[in-house]
């Protein structure tokens, strides 16, 4: 008897446009890990009969992360830089039976799209938003991002980033949405766990995923291979069950606290406007 079992196809292949694989993401990138973890949570919800895959929509903006829309087999939209959240909001309001996921990067969601993020959270809009933070504008070649920790070198901060990074967990939490969590691509089980909880919940849900960009982030700050960057990020993350918002602060030396910062069950936008459908 063979020691290994040959699996004819990827366990998530029914959720993937397999003809478009392999994906465009670099070796060592956290995006594939993140998408895989999300799809495993989706699969659990589908198998439990809690999500109809025909009603699931993934909306992305522009950037490395936005390419996720290429690879999912269910409905998806690759829109414009920063605008995934309003596009997704329009789709959800027009057809409340849809479960709409936004999948974007930190530049997309917190930089150019930051205003849309704040207002969607304020409305407790019935969306699940993932922000994959690789701490850099990667697709354009490694420019400083709003999330880049102070002091780090990027192509547009060749003398070190003089600015302070944005704390998106705190920013979103200040608008009192229903769910705010932070995970990391170094902890895929957490991404799956948080996604599983947030899928199908009412109101605005936000999950930040700290991620690795070895190509145009790690190499600029002295991590010359994907493994060393992965190990560095992993060593800078600490998991807590229900951290306080003050623990959401981060910098390059102290790293990130991962966990579920906010879990609430307030009425979402659709319920408050009389359009909620369970």
């Amino acid at each position: 008897m063979a020691l290994t079992r040959v699996i004819a196809e990827h366990p998530l292949s029914k959720y993937l446009v397999n003809e478009r694989l392999p994906h465009a993401w670099c070796p060592g990138c956290g995006l594939g890990i993140t998408l895989g973890a999300i799809l495993r949570a989706v699969d659990r919800k589908v198998r439990e009969g809690k999500i109809d895959i025909k009603k699931l929509v993934l909306v992305s903006g522009i950037g490395c992360s936005a390419r996720a829309s290429f690879y999912v087999r269910f409905d998806s939209a690759h829109t414009i830089h920063g605008r995934a959240i309003p596009f997704a909001t329009g789709a959800k309001l027009a057809n409340p039976s849809l479960e709409v996921i936004v999948f974007g990067g930190d530049g997309d969601i917190a930089g150019i799209g930051g205003n849309h993020l704040i207002h969607a959270a304020r409305r407790n809009m019935d969306l699940l938003v993932f922000m994959v933070s690789n701490l850099v504008y990667a697709m354009t070649g490694g420019q400083v991002a709003p999330t880049t920790p102070t002091g780090l070198f990027t192509t547009t901060t060749p003398y070190g980033n003089p600015e302070r990074p944005i704390n998106v967990v705190k920013l979103v939490a200040s608008q009192n949405p229903n769910y705010v969590a932070r995970a990391s691509a170094t902890h895929p089980a957490l991404i799956e766990q948080y996604t599983y909880r947030a899928l199908g919940m009412e109101g605005f849900r936000f999950i930040e995923v700290i991620s690795m960009c070895p190509e145009v982030f790690g190499r600029h700050i002295g991590y010359n291979d994907p493994v060393s960057l992965y190990k560095a990020i992993k060593s800078k993350t600490r998991v807590k069950a229900r951290p306080s918002l003050d623990e959401a602060d981060y910098d390059w030396n102290h790293g990130w606290v991962l966990g579920e910062f906010i879990i609430k069950n307030n009425p979402g936008y659709l319920r408050t406007t009389g359009r909620w459908r369970a």
Binding site: V59, A77, T79, I80, R83, P86, F87, A88, T89, G90, A91, K92, L93, A94, N95, L98
Partner: peptide
């Protein structure tokens, strides 16, 4: 953008 999303919905 919301209008475009609604149109696609």
């Amino acid at each position: 953008n919301a209008v475009i999303g609604a149109s696609w919905a």
